[in-house]
Simulated assay, not measured.
Amino acid sequence: MKDVSQFYGFEFRWLYVVDLVIVIFLVIQLYRLLKGSLAFNIFLGLLMVYVVFFVVRYLEMPILTNILQNFINIGLIAIIIIFQPEIRKFLLVLGKKTPLSKDSFLTKLFLPDRFKSYKEEEHIINEVITAVGHMVASQTGALIVIATTYRVKFDSASSITIDGNVSAKLIESIFEKNSPLHDGALIIVGNKILAAKAMLPMSDSPNLPTRVGMRHRSAVGITEHSDNLAIVVSEERATISFAQDGQLTQNVSLEELKVKLYEVLVDGY
């Protein structure tokens, strides 16, 4: 008769492997999320505290073990407070990778509208591309946020409600240099221009080039903790950039921007 402990030992060894793979996956996601930010240095400091705690506990140093144990217990609450934005972004990244996320094969296969027409989305894409092309040619600065959900973080008190259909002429008139609405961002939600002159949270990421201005920092800021696409037309350099998931991509062509809009508005469903 087989030893029961050996049988369960084989099972537990496989569980250890699964456990290790999950931990490695989470650490990689955390590293990608925090690298290059001030939060990464705080994370390394906390990691060092945990390492020291395990060392002093192994060496049976009761006073230091007790002090570090209490610090760690209190530190768990501090971690939630300090890393609140990063935790939200981390959960957003994990949510995108689940089998039931909108980008997954299962969702696309079983959603009843998987064969829907995308004429509305194509209309929005064409109007935005037309407006951006004209603004680049005239060196007109612009910041356009394409929101995939209705939860968009911007200062509604300082913004002007538009609630108009998406059209190139309307977008261009809003960002026209003499327009009172040209400062701030234009928010597009669904098939409507929701608001103009919107003030967005600016990113303080050290990864951004020092030469980028407020429009680019605001574009990155609005996408750091929400699933949006922000488009920037540079007034000085007449170039196009876009931000997504807190990452800024500069000097893209109109065709590259169009591909990105299709990815967000069509392929994302």
Rank of each mutant, 00 (worst) to 15 (best):
V27A: 13
H123C: 00
D19L: 13
L200V: 01
Y31V: 13
S253F: 07
T130D: 08
K2D: 14
A195I: 00
S205K: 14
T140F: 06
V166T: 03
A185T: 02
I240L: 01
I63R: 04
G164Y: 03
L200T: 00
V93L: 14
S117Q: 12
G9D: 07
Q250V: 12
V17T: 10
I80W: 10
G268Q: 01
V132T: 15
S37H: 09
E256R: 04
V264M: 04
E236K: 13
I146H: 08
P112Q: 03
V252T: 15
A230W: 00
D204H: 14
V136F: 11
P112E: 01
S101T: 06
G268F: 00
F7R: 09
S234F: 03
T98K: 06
L100Y: 10
V212S: 10
Q139M: 09
L254C: 07
K116S: 10
I22T: 14
H123Q: 07
N191C: 06
I193E: 02
L248N: 02
D227C: 02
M214I: 15
F10Q: 05
E255S: 14
F154G: 03
Y50F: 12
H123W: 07
E236W: 13
R13N: 11
V252A: 15
L208K: 14
D19K: 13
S37A: 05
I24C: 04
V264D: 05
A157K: 04
S5W: 07
E263L: 05
L143D: 15
G36M: 02
D113C: 01
A157S: 12
L47P: 07
